[in-house]
Design a protein around this nucleic acid. Structure first.
Lengths: 173, 173
DNA sequence: CCTATCATGTAATCCGTTACATGATTAT
DNA sequence: ATAATCATGTAACGGATTACATGATAGG
């Protein structure tokens, strides 16, 4: 019940549980996240277990454990948990994000544009297709749809950028 | 001299030292980084100190310490360090990056689009101006220029995205 | 029934962040 | 000179990643 610091990871978990609207195991969260949040903010599955534990200790989740078999743990948002989630998402941030793209880092420090571009064009294309496919399904809340649209737009920008490098392969120095 | 695992942070340090082409203190690295790499991949300044130490232990940097006064530490790339850097940057990655934008996360989980957009539009606009200003200076290697151009393009996309949300403020649900 | 793969989870390690601290330098 | 700010650095803590491990389930 101690009031520990919440990280972005914490809010991903709180948000997923809120969206689920019901009890869920960390594994449930992982499955739904993999086709939604993880598209633009991924978290290793092991962290979902420890984070649920942490949040439960802080009183933001309740924990129920199966008696038999796997003894799986089911978590649910408490009122306090929902409150923290709402406070967080209603408070706008002015921190602007960073690209933090490993390939751009290599490019920045002198990596060969053409070789990098070859890998990046196909990577971003398949990512875009993935997003478009997931986007087809209906019934998502508006925020999720908007986030996906921005993600797709970002992919298109990346594709254009790296494709252009590929074309100018006679480029100078 | 033990062969520890190198992280992206390691390569930022190696890359900065390579670009410097001379001995530098962690503080030197910080100053040059703040107007270049940190625009799209930032690292807390304290980490530059510990990372230089780590890399020196691994034999990728040499360390020279001032005798008098501040007893500052100066680092320089070794041949092994340069080799690791080159290997890294010449090997293309297929990992595509993630947005990892805290505001998009809030949007995704139901944050109010208009309130978020208000803060984001101005944040991204000032970031774009900053990038454009830094971009004016000449004499940078091509990779750095390209990285900056992608960064500016990404900012423009973000500005368009959030601005559109602002305009449609009568928007549905 | 045996094996391979997927589901589910724990533990240890280590990087990255935060908090703090002291030496220079500038301004007044 | 003294305060204030900037430069430079250290140490502790905790979150995130990695490595590993065991229980279910399906296919042959």
């Amino acid at each position: 019940m101690s009031s520990l610091r919440l990280t972005d990871t914490s809010f991903v978990v709180l948000g997923l549980l809120d969206a689920a609207g019901a009890e869920a195991t960390p594994y449930d969260l992982k499955r739904v996240a993999q086709v939604s949040v993880f598209n633009f903010w991924s978290i290793p599955h092991t962290q979902l277990y420890t984070e649920c534990e942490r949040l439960a200790e802080a009183g933001l989740l309740t924990e129920r454990r199966e008696e038999s078999g796997r003894r799986r743990r089911f978590y649910r948002l408490t009122a306090a948990g929902r409150k923290r989630l709402e406070e967080w998402r209603d408070e706008p941030t002015d921190v602007s994000c960073e690209l933090r793209d490993p390939s751009v880092l290599k490019l920045f420090f002198g990596g060969d544009p053409v070789r990098l571009a070859e890998a990046q064009v196909s990577a971003h294309k398949s990512k875009l297709e993935e997003l478009e496919a997931a986007h087809g399904a209906a019934g998502f809340p508006r925020g999720m749809i908007l986030a996906a649209e921005l993600g797709m737009e970002a992919e298109r920008v990346a594709i254009r950028f790296w494709s252009r490098l590929l074309e100018e392969r006679r480029g100078d120095g």
